[in-house]
Amino acid sequence: MSQSPSPAGGDVLLSVRNLSKRFHTASGPVKAVEDVSFDVGRGRIVGIVGESGSGKTTAGRCILRLVEPSEGEAVFDGVDLFKLPERALRAYRRRMQIIFQDPYSSLNPRMRVGDIIGEAIDTHGLAKGAARQARIADLLTRVGLSPEHARRYPHEFSGGQRQRIGIARALAVEPELIVADEPVSALDVSVQAQVLNLIQELQKELGLTMLFISHDLTVVEYLCDDIVVLYLGRILEQGPSREVYANPRHPYTKALLSTAPIPDPTVRRERVILQGDIPSPLDPPSGCVFRTRCPFAIEACARAVPPHESVSPGHSVACIRQAELATPATQKVTA
C-alpha cells in the first residue's frame, strides 16, 4: 500500500494495516473507519485525534476486538489480532487493555472496588488469596488511592478517583498496550492534570505503549509522541507530534490547530474557521472526505481518495495540494 508507516525508530509493537469498519444501520451502511494504517512503536504514546464521526473510538475498539473489524489487520508483536479465534484472543487480552472516558459508567455500580480489580486478576488466574489481596492493595496505592478503598463501592468516589480505579483495573493484568479513550475529557481541569500526571508516571515506570484517543489538541500535543489525525473515518495526516504541531501540512490539521482554544489572550493566530458541518458518515463525500469544508478544494479532490505522501521522516499527509500549501499556522505576537 501507499501509506508510509511511521515508527520513529525503535521496534513496533502494534502495526495497523488497512483497517476498515462498516456498520450496517437502518439508514444504510456507515463507513466508520476506512483504510486506516499506522504503527505504534513500543513505549510510545500515539495520539488519535478527531472530531465526532471521525471513527477514532471505533478504531480503538477494533484493535482490541471489542468491535469486530470489517477488514485489515492489526499485527501485535508479530501476531495478527484480527485472525485470532476467540479462545486464543483471550491470552492476548491480558497484554492490551482499555481505559474509558466516562468515569461513571465504566465501573459496575454493584461491585466493590476490590472485586472490580480482582476480576481482572481472577480472569487470568494471576493471584489467589492473600497474594491477590496484596496485589489489589498495591494497584490501588500505585494509582494514588489507598488499600482500604478496596472495600468501597464506586459511587463513594469522585470522578477523578473513579478514573484512577479504572486505570488500576487496566493495569491489573500487566498489559503492554493501553488504549485510552478520552480518559481525561470528562474530568475537571484540576483533576485532569492529576490524571495526566498519573498516566505519564505509569507509562514511564511500566514501559507502557499507549494509544491515546482524544479530541483535545492541547492534551495530545503535551502527552503524545506521535499523532494520527482522523476525519470521517480516514487518516488525513500522521507523524511525530512535535513535527505535526510545528508544521501541519493538511488543511484540516491546520484549521484544527488554528482554532483549538489556547488559554492565552495574547496569542494572535490566523484562524482558519471551517465553514459548514461535518458531513454525515452515512454519506461521506467522494474523493477526499474533507473537500466539502476545505478552503483549498479543487475539482480533482472529488475524483480520487488522495494517497498518503511522505513530507518528512514519519510524517505523511493525504492531500493532493499539500506541497503548494505549506505555510505555518501559528505565530505568537507578544503585546
Binding site: V189, S190, V191, T218, V219, E221, Y222, P263
Partner: peptide, 23 residues
C-alpha cells in the same frame, strides 16, 4: 488552574522531554 492546562512551551525541558504538570 492555569498551571493544570498543558502548555507546550512551559511543559517541555530544553531537550524536548515532557515535564510533569502541576495539578
Amino acid at each position: 488552574l492555569l498551571a493544570c492546562i498543558p502548555n507546550p512551551e512551559r511543559d517541555r525541558a530544553a531537550d524536548g522531554a515532557r515535564l510533569m504538570l502541576n495539578p
